[in-house]
């Protein structure tokens, strides 16, 4: 029931690439409404669109909704998300082609209502703008990857500067933690004077291992008669286990008709 209810919220319209496209995709859109609106997706002016075809871009969508009214921004992403931009990356990941979702923000509130009333969308391509696809697009992307060494150097320097200042800030923060607080507590950090071990999985395993070893060293293994007897038994058990395993293997081979040599 829930699913059908939700579908009725969405409005479906065909989105053509050109005027003469015969088999367009259908996009589904509704007013963007979540509990906490962010600055870039203001309440009342934003529509949320799903099933945007892989080749569509911001400008194309602006074209498509141009009849409803002036548009202030379009944001395309792979998955609907409310988060703001995440950590800056040095090598930006190549965007993979896939169906997208879009947040389209109108300049005026009235345009949104008009958009929800639309019975037809304009094609993505207008006279003044054509979406680049295929070989043209690939050539553009290829050329964009090639940088002048100078530019690359500048990028690296800029990034490292930012990184260095950030780490310096972090260090400062840690130093600060190291100071006694009002109640006399000291937080132990990596860089501090107080020696501590790193809290990693590896170190933890090592400690456990060491303990086990110590325990083992203290044990006598081949001392009492019952121990010797048990070790003999263990040998037989091992042989038996192997025998059983082999029997199982045979059964398996037998099942897969492997014993008919000819």
């Amino acid at each position: 029931m829930k699913a059908t209810k939700r579908t009725h919220d969405f409005k479906a319209l065909a989105l053509k690439l050109n005027d003469d496209s015969s088999c367009p995709h259908y996009i589904y859109f509704k007013e963007h409404s979540v509990r906490e609106h962010t600055k870039d997706k203001p309440a009342g002016r934003t529509i949320f669109i799903v099933n945007v075809p892989p080749y569509a871009d911001e400008k194309g969508l602006t074209n498509a909704f141009s009849e409803a009214g002036p548009i202030s921004s379009v944001k395309l992403c792979i998955k609907p998300n409310t988060m703001e931009d995440d950590i800056p990356k040095f090598i930006s990941e190549k965007q993979k082609k896939s169906f997208q979702v879009a947040y389209l923000v109108f300049e005026k509130v009235s345009a949104l209502d008009r958009a929800l009333q639309l019975s037809e969308l304009k094609p993505l391509n207008s006279e003044s703008y054509r979406i680049k696809t295929g070989i043209q697009k690939w050539i553009e992307e290829f050329n964009k990857e090639i940088l002048q060494p100078k530019t690359l150097k500048e990028n690296i320097e800029a990034f490292m500067k930012k990184y260095d200042s950030e780490t310096a800030k972090e260090k400062k923060k840690e130093k600060k933690l190291e100071q006694e607080d009002d109640e006399g507590w000291v937080t132990v950090t990596k860089g501090g004077k107080i020696q501590s071990f790193a809290r990693t999985e590896k170190v933890e395993n090592k400690i456990l291992e060491k303990e086990e070893k110590n325990k083992k060293r203290k044990e006598l293994k081949n001392f009492y008669t019952f121990q010797i007897r048990e070790s003999k038994m263990k040998h037989i058990v091992m042989l038996r286990q192997k025998f059983e395993e082999d029997k199982k293997k045979i059964a398996q081979i037998k099942q897969s008709r492997r014993f008919k040599p000819f």
């Binding site: 015969s22 088999c23 367009p24 995709h25 259908y26 075809p53 295929g134 070989i135 043209q136």
Partner: peptide
């Protein structure tokens, strides 16, 4: 009743669009 299925025709059309110049 309104039901939904994969738009095969549009995808086939997309093959042409994405591979413009090559296809």
């Amino acid at each position: 009743e309104t039901r939904y299925k994969v738009n095969k025709e549009a995808i086939i059309e997309d093959f042409r669009i994405l591979g413009q110049g090559l296809v």
